[in-house]
Amino acid sequence: MTMINYAKKEIICKVVYYGPGLCGKTTNLKFIYDNIMGQYKGKMIALATESERTLFFDFLPLDFGKIKNFNAKFQLYTVPGQAYYTNSRKLILKGADGVVFVADSQTDRFEENKESLKDLAVNLREQGLDIRKIPLVLQWNKRDLPNIVPIQTLEETLNFRKVPTFEAVAAKGIGVFETLKTIVKMVFVSLGGQG
């Protein structure tokens, strides 16, 4: 649910990074925060436990400045990945304009990716959103680790919509900005095509 503020000439969009526990959602946001130009970023908050697991959500506001007549602002959120935080995930998906699904490429996390994607579909539906229509980008993270699932298997299993996908090593920043740019563009395209 984009907010279009004609008074301030602002468009404010919400993008949620989703995926199983410890797949690298927060790492994506941290890399963006550390590497994006200062003029674009606001203050990041991370509500995490000491073991680096996200407890509620992370939040990073980005202000891209003026595009045509509007000031474009994006608010990036992550969800807590562990299965039992499903209520938190529902809350954070409320009003989402786009979703980045971060999959953990490691073989032993394959099933968790599938479960998390199903969980995303259910939770989106509860917010009146449709996983088949919402702007969505998939990121295959941790491609530098041993014992990883082949890209083709990930594509066949998780990319049922044939949406854009990116190989990534979020800790090193590989694929992070490509993912962000693509979801931002998709959200804008969906915004323009409404009504």
Partner: peptide, 15 residues
């Protein structure tokens, strides 16, 4: 699927 945006007009923000 309905996906309504929220639109804030200048006169409403003033109010």
């Amino acid at each position: 699927m309905f996906k309504g945006n929220k639109v804030l007009q200048p006169e409403d923000l003033d109010k």
